[in-house]
Amino acid sequence: DFVNIASGTPFTVSEVEALHDLFRKISNTVVKDNLIHKEEFHVALFRNKKKQNLFVDRLFDLFDQKGNGVIEFGEFVRSLSVFHPGAPEEQKAAFAFKLYDLRQTGFIERNELKEMVCALLDESELDITSDAVEMIVDRTFDQADTKGDGRIDQEEWTAFAKDNPYVLRNMTLPYLKDITMVFPSFVVHSEISEADMAAK
């Protein structure tokens, strides 16, 4: 099964195995059923299940590809693979578009962007006036909404991300590049036995 899951992602089979170890841990923190519930996703990210975060909720929904309220292992690996440094930029851009299309209308609308900026300011210490927020949103639309219809479609977004690659910065997790090296504890639990490790 690991082989199957690894295919079509930049992960090797042993990396998928390492991810399974991580998945098992996260998916059993609240409900011991080997599925990641929203609460467990929050706990893993924030150590706090109560903290509300617009983006984490959207991320959870996107990881939950089947939309059945839980993240299964295959969904976890496939979604994380988009954040791999080796994943194609177009894939990252498409994922980010879905994230930002809060109401899943197929467009990033002005009020959605404003909502995201406000959510961001809420969680940060930044104190920015609502006039300034309007200005930032206006200016962003000036740049990205090239067709000028008041919403950003997938095509406009892809072009915008291509011209401004830094907007996809959050779509790359350097950790994923060599997951078994960065998290050597995984290796112990993988096929390499403890005795082999001790011998090294």
């Binding site: 991580l22 841990k25 996260i26 923190t29 706990v43 893993a44 990210l45 924030f46 150590r47 975060n53 617009l54 983006f55 984490v56 991320l59 994380l80 954040f83 930002y100 962007l113 995201m116 900026v117 959510a119 961001l120 969680e123 940060s124 930032i136 949103v137 200016r139 962003t140 740049q143 990205a144 915008f160 401004n164 830094y166 907007v167 996809l168 910065r169 959050n170 779509m171 997790l173 950790y175 960065v182 998290f183």
Partner: peptide, 25 residues
Amino acid sequence: RSCNAFQLISSMSSGFDLSGLFESE
């Protein structure tokens, strides 16, 4: 000057910091 909303979101939101997933000790 070149600041835009998506830049702010991508560089600042803790909601995107998935590294927490890897520190779930």
